[in-house]
Design a protein around this nucleic acid. Sequence first.
DNA 1: CACTGTGAACACTTTCACAGCT
DNA 2: AGCTGTGAAAGTGTTCACAGTG
Lengths: 279, 279
Amino acid sequence: MATGRTHRPATRSRGIPEATVARLPLYLRALTALSERSVPTVSSEELAAAAGVNSAKLRKDFSYLGSYGTRGVGYDVEYLVYQISRELGLTQDWPVVIVGIGNLGAALANYGGFASRGFRVAALIDADPAMAGKPVAGMPVQHTDDLEKIIEENGVSIGVIATPAGAAQQVSERLIAAGVTSILNFAPTVLSVPEGVDVRKVDLSIELQILAFHEQRKAGEGSGGAGADVDADTEPGADAAAGAAPVAAVEPPAGRAAAAAAAARKGGPEGDVPAVMPA
Amino acid sequence: MATGRTHRPATRSRGIPEATVARLPLYLRALTALSERSVPTVSSEELAAAAGVNSAKLRKDFSYLGSYGTRGVGYDVEYLVYQISRELGLTQDWPVVIVGIGNLGAALANYGGFASRGFRVAALIDADPAMAGKPVAGMPVQHTDDLEKIIEENGVSIGVIATPAGAAQQVSERLIAAGVTSILNFAPTVLSVPEGVDVRKVDLSIELQILAFHEQRKAGEGSGGAGADVDADTEPGADAAAGAAPVAAVEPPAGRAAAAAAAARKGGPEGDVPAVMPA
DNA sequence: CACTGTGAACACTTTCACAGCT
DNA sequence: AGCTGTGAAAGTGTTCACAGTG
């Protein structure tokens, strides 16, 4: 148990590390695939490979759930599927609402994996009156005016926000006031929410920017100010140059005034990073 | 990602921690907003609040980039925008291709923030011949047959996969063979790629499952230890919330046979967690 | 004085390596 | 013999608190 920070009740340690929780869905997916192929048992090694992690990590993760394996044999697939599902709360049904039915919202609504795993789309909500009543994914879009009613009547506690950035904060406040306590936010904004409400964020441009950072490292940078590509991110086993990365030279640093000008030029036509979808 | 091997050169390295890299886009977004309001300087405290992190973390993050602030004053907004953009590689143009133009692919193609920040959609690619030529986001969809040609001609090094799960691995292999070295994967599969290729994953059902886990904690389970929640990001506001969360009790554990049966019952109609979009 | 920049403490995560069970 | 489960070590990330500076 290591250093218990404050006093954790010595009961069955219910404290599953966040990093482990984030991997459970991965294991579950791999296990489900095995289950469909009627594979009865897996070793930590096999399952880890399927989930894309290493086996020590997997075993450690499972050890937080309990001792569900059999030494010398491995894990019973069906049993583990059940245990992980239960741990994740997927043995109950979670009604969710999707707010903002643009391209992205529609894509989410059509997402099959939703229904198959304990989640049920209870309603699609959009602010555009022209959308109201239109069927999306076999379900009529409802107007934002009814948001509170919909949340309450369906006992919704998880909301998905797929609105433009400008609307997201307000939508989140209405969702929360109506009883939602978990939000999955696709709008490119930081939501500020009261304690006790969980927010997870999915943000395309952040992901791309992180990729660009690493991509830049791979490309050139052999010499000069920035130093060698220290973080031996990986060996260029397969020649990174193949793709002829863009060569545009980075403008050299300059005095603050000049730099500021350069930065200002970048200001796009749109305001802040705009919303993922237009309506 | 990179198996960090043995000794790290003790040179005061350019090694920016991954966690910091992941936050730079957040800072950049907040700074861009300030820049548009012509705010000349920010303190770490203010900027941190806008980005949803705490100020110590922000200062530490910036310290990896260099000393870009002024003691007693704060940071010059324009200057920081430029420095972070440069660090992230956004001063150059990154052509990207999107493969799989279903609902999600179309949503991504229409995503405005793409273009405004160093990323340019070079092509939309889909396997459906019926899609070929159709305009999406003002751009004709091209057929998968031409994938390699498109990648090479445009010098694309970043690919976005928005295909069904079943196609993702193969698509990634073709992208990589053609020169792509960074992939943003929206398909619910673990991609296996050679060393030197970065993959980032965006997965709706994983995010929902993580939310469900925490949601479940909030609902029942009042007695046990774990009380705190995930991410205490912003300042505590009103504690309100108080939603009526679903109360359905989790089925009690049972003997292995019974549990397995229960688990089996859950097997969804669809195969594995299906793709986000139908292509 | 206000605010940055940073060493040092602390907390969390991953990895190692092996004891222990079947 | 084979594989799980887990302490302990190593590595990463976060927070504290204050020295240093404009």
